[in-house]
Nucleic acid binder design. Structure first.
Length: 887
RNA sequence: GCCCGCGUGGCGGAAUUGGUAGACGCAAGGGACUUAAAAUCCCUCGGCCGCAAGGCUGUGCCGGUUCGAGUCCGGCCGCGGGCACCA
């Protein structure tokens, strides 16, 4: 039994055969053969170097970039969607006269290669490069307008050697530092994860519950740029609002104060951070993070406290734990003095809800105006003192129950702050803290520095040497690159670089003594933080050269919203770091960003609950489904993002084999708006295929003889022909606008509409009154359709352009221009309302007056009837749009 | 919990940003061509009433602004996404 795609393929084959009989019957009608055509045009573009580009100061540049793929083995539908959209933009901009850079490369370092090595004994390099070869071939079969001469792979020494050089520059510019810190340790992958790579307490890749460990790490000072990264967001007006908001929240700026509590009976003080210094007179306790140094000190002589701290650590960071965790504290017995009045004393707790990583690792609690603090105070019977009075409330009526008051108001119970609004009180409290030398106003950020050390093999080696005498020594430039050793084994967990017999042993560049290389490699997010710059001069001896000044920034970046924070924020930071070191003269890498939706498909399960591939399922027209082999019923589940685990995947290669790349591309762009999820359906693909053939037939076998190619326009056109011309030019104008705005689905609909207009024009079997005019406008319409669809279905368009007798390459042909005089109709249809209700329409010359319109409208029977017996109070007239009699 | 976004036919979605709701397509039904099929072409297709002309109703629900609301405002309901003991 053939699978569904196989059957579809056989059906296609069968119709190819039946085309012979059509020819035998004498018809000229041939059938579009995408397989032969697509390869032919791809060869032609390649031979001519159509998409090879260089800097050309005479022309405006346009840099189109889709997020480069990880070479996992095969392309998936998400890639097809992503690269189709990018290709539409690239081809459109090229036709509009831009010098378009549209490159492709591979995000080629990373864990899956090492997993493959462990599971199947293939070397990561071999695995990766083989995958790249496969996927390059698949992408090329899509007919993308890519300059393949610029291809790069981040795992290639010719790429990562530049990254190492920049790392050393960053080190010299104090953009990198070595820090010892608590890290998220992934016990499955045996590696450290950045905070943002920990999702719900689990590793983003392994899904293992993350442990806390203390390690020496390399950090990039992204926090130095927190304010700049935040402020610059507002200028990124061609980014989705959603992404800018997510980055804003991620950076997490908050203004407040850092100040000190003096500890009774000790010399030291406890530093705390607050955003609400105005509520200081409502303080009823001080709380330390379980990881706070003072907590550790106290625990060393207090086993109960040590147990409590251990308990907090065991809680972990998993979502369930946090969700259900009660706010717990341990009273240390210490007391601190209130900064504004030493006579006021607060107890010091260690509390499970205080984070060491944020602020000062300690807080003061004001239960009346913070929900967490209130929960805590109720549990440990601490005082609740309201100090913010909501407006229009009597102080006597203020009562805090189970809900803290976090709104605006006026300070009270707060001595010198009384009567001030919250914002004023904050400023006054900070002023007093500074006056007393007890604290200072500060701005804190949620953003943490970026730890980039990874205990992995398949990544960019960190080019430093650890010498016992000299400490950390950068690898001298003439010794770069630090190459990955090829003879490594993956039979044990852990980093092969550590246990390699010779690789790490070297000599200190400073003192010449025996020393060891850093065995860590860089986070792969570093690789993807500058690849867009490397594409400008991919073979340069330097990381980047002058070409970046021509090409950067990327004018249109396209990718999945899942990279809204990590990749995009890192790349923005890295661009700034490169700018600081003199590599670039821009600070923002991507001036335009588009985030596309995912590709979804229905899910199928057999009676045992096992997931089934779409080709294993036979769908009936009534919506039910059965298993192809067993005939057993199959339950059809909701459409979800395509994933291997749920088996609801369709292989792009099968689709391209069966229907051709153009059909896949056309379907990708139809129906669903690009930012939304797309539902992949067999019927939809069939629809796309049918449409492309419809256009093919209209061009290759028109019912009216076409005018000669490039023939001048006839002196006069009859009404029908003129209407077709108008439709043609309106489509040009509208489609250009659609493409500028990523309205691909609207664009597809418009092209189809114009096709319908042309079919109606020639398809009714009656000979046109003026065959010359008809042949001319039909050619203009067809050429327009072919040109407009070129960015979307370039092979078919190129083929039909040739069949229309054109000798230029469509890929090199300028975008058609709409004639403005044809965009405006001579007559307009005006809606007529009576009392706001539609009663009919009238046809009037464009820009006609109100009196004519009223006269024409009153004649309409429905209008007359609706108005009978009523007096007109007012008439609303919007020229060319609407006429409304208010009765 | 907080912050965003979205609710339009059986389905995916249009609607020049306040001016004829349902473009374009998918699915479905009917018909033509054919020995038959495939392919293709034509017609119907939000709901209710009506033989028809036509009428009423309709963009998640309730209310408001307006001559006029899918579009603006307020309040609900539902779905999706992001963030989360961030002091």
């Amino acid at each position: 039994m053939p699978s569904l795609p196989q059957r579809r393929y056989l059906a296609a084959l069968f119709s190819q055969l039946s085309l012979n009989s059509v020819i035998l019957r004498g018809s000229l009608m041939a059938r579009y053969n995408p397989k032969e055509t697509e390869i032919r045009w791809q060869d032609e573009w390649r031979k001519r170097g159509t998409f090879r580009v260089g800097e050309d100061p005479a022309r405006p540049k346009y840099y189109v970039l889709e997020m480069f793929p990880y070479p996992s083995g095969r392309i998936h539908m998400g890639h097809v969607r992503n690269y189709t959209m990018g290709d539409v933009v690239a081809r459109y901009k090229k036709a509009k006269g831009f010098n378009v850079l549209h490159p492709m490369g591979w995000d080629a370092f990373g864990l899956p290669a090492e997993n493959a090595a462990m599971e199947r004994g293939i070397h990561p390099a071999k695995w990766t490069y083989e995958n790249i070869d496969t996927m390059r071939g698949q992408l090329q079969s899509m007919g993308l307008s890519i300059d393949w001469d610029r291809e790069i792979a981040t795992c290639h020494p010719e790429y990562y050697r530049h990254q190492q050089r920049m790392f050393i520059d960053f080190l010299k510019s104090d953009l990198v530092y070595r820090g010892e810190s608590w890290v998220n340790w992934d016990p499955v992958d045996h590696t450290v994860l950045a905070n943002e790579q920990v999702i719900d307490g689990r590793g983003w890749r392994s899904n293992a519950i993350v442990e806390k460990r203390r390690l020496s790490q390399w950090f990039l000072r992204i926090t130095d740029y927190a304010q700049d990264l935040l402020e610059a967001l507002s200028a990124l007006d061609r980014w989705p609002e959603k992404v800018r908001l997510m980055q804003t929240n991620w950076i997490g700026r908050s203004e407040g104060a850092r100040f000190y509590f003096k500890v009774r009976g000790r010399d030291d003080r406890i530093e705390v951070f607050t955003t609400r210094p105005d509520t200081l007179f409502g303080a009823s306790f001080c709380a330390l993070s379980p990881n706070h140094p003072l907590a550790a000190e106290l625990a060393s002589s207090n086993s109960d406290l040590a147990d409590f701290i251990a308990e907090c650590g065991r809680l972990g960071t998993s979502e369930e734990a946090i969700e259900t965790a009660e706010k717990l504290g341990y009273d240390t017995g210490l007391k601190v003095a209130h900064p504004f009045d030493p006579d006021l004393e607060l107890p010091v707790y260690v509390a499970n809800f205080v984070l060491m990583e944020y602020g000062a690792g300690a807080i003061f609690g004001c239960p009346a105006h913070d929900q967490r603090d209130l929960d805590f105070a109720r549990k440990y019977n601490l005082p609740v003192i309201p100090v913010v009075l909501p407006s229009d409330t009597d102080p006597a009526d203020v009562e805090i129950g189970d809900e803290a008051y976090t709104g605006d108001g006026t300070a009270f119970n707060s001595r010198f702050l009384d009567g001030l609004k919250v914002a004023e009180a904050k400023a006054a409290a900070i002023a007093r803290l500074e006056e007393l030398d007890a604290g200072v106003g500060v701005t804190e950020y949620r953003l943490r520095d970026w730890g980039i050390s990874r205990q992995r093999y398949w990544g960019c080696p960190i080019p430093v040497i650890h010498c016992e005498a000299c400490g950390v020594v950068p690898v001298p430039e003439d010794q770069l690159p630090v190459l990955l050793p090829e003879d490594v084994s993956f039979d044990k967990p852990g980093n092969p670089l550590v246990r390699h017999p010779t690789w790490k042993h070297t000599l200190c560049p400073k003192c010449g003594a025996a020393a060891e290389r850093d065995t860590d490699t860089m986070d792969t997010f570093v690789d993807s933080s500058w690849y867009f710059a490397r594409f400008c001069s991919p073979r340069s001896e330097r990381p980047v050269d002058e070409a970046v000044d021509y090409w950067l920034p990327v004018d249109q970046y396209i990718g999945g919203v899942e990279h809204a924070i990590l990749h995009l924020l890192y790349a923005r930071f890295f661009t700034r770091a490169m700018e600081k070191c003199g590599y670039l003269s821009v600070k923002e890498p991507f001036s335009g960003l588009f985030t596309q939706g995912m590709v979804c498909h229905e899910t199928y399960r057999d009676p045992n609950g096992h997931w089934l591939f779409p080709e294993e399922v036979d769908k009936k027209s009534d919506g039910t489904a059965t298993h192809v082999e067993t005939g057993k019923p199959v339950s059809v589940g909701r459409s979800e993002s395509m994933s291997k685990s749920k088996r609801n995947v369709v292989d792009p290669e099968t689709i391209i084999e069966t229907y051709g790349a153009d059909t896949a591309r056309w379907f990708m762009l139809s129906d669903s708006p690009p930012e939304r999820d797309l539902e992949w359906t067999d019927a939809g693909v069939d629809g796309a295929w049918r449409y492309l053939n419809r256009v093919y037939r209209l061009v290759t076998d028109p019912a009216v003889d076409l005018a000669a190619a490039n023939a001048p326009a006839p002196a006069a056109l009859d009404d029908a022909a003129l209407e077709v011309r108008r439709a043609t030019h309106k489509t040009i104008a509208a489609l250009s606008d659609d493409l500028e705005k990523f309205g691909f689905n609207r664009g597809v609909a418009r092209i189809r509409e114009l096709t319908n207009v042309l079919y109606d024009f020639v398809g009714d079997g009656t000979a046109p009154s003026d065959a010359t005019a008809a042949g001319w406008v039909l050619r203009e319409g067809l050429e327009t359709i072919v040109q407009l669809m070129n960015p979307m279905v370039p092979h078919l368009a190129e083929e039909l352009w040739r069949q229309l007798g054109q000798t230029t390459l469509l890929a090199d042909t300028p975008w058609p221009e709409a004639d403005p005089s044809l965009l405006i109709d001579e007559t307009v249809t005006i809606a007529v309302q009576v009392g706001g209700k539609m009663r009919g329409t009238i046809e009037l010359p464009r820009d006609g007056g109100q009196s004519e319109a009223e006269a024409a409208a009153k004649v309409l029977p429905q209008v007359a009837e609706a108005m009978s017996g009523k007096s007109v109070r007012k008439v609303i007239f919007v020229p060319n749009r609407i006429l409304n009699f208010v009765v």
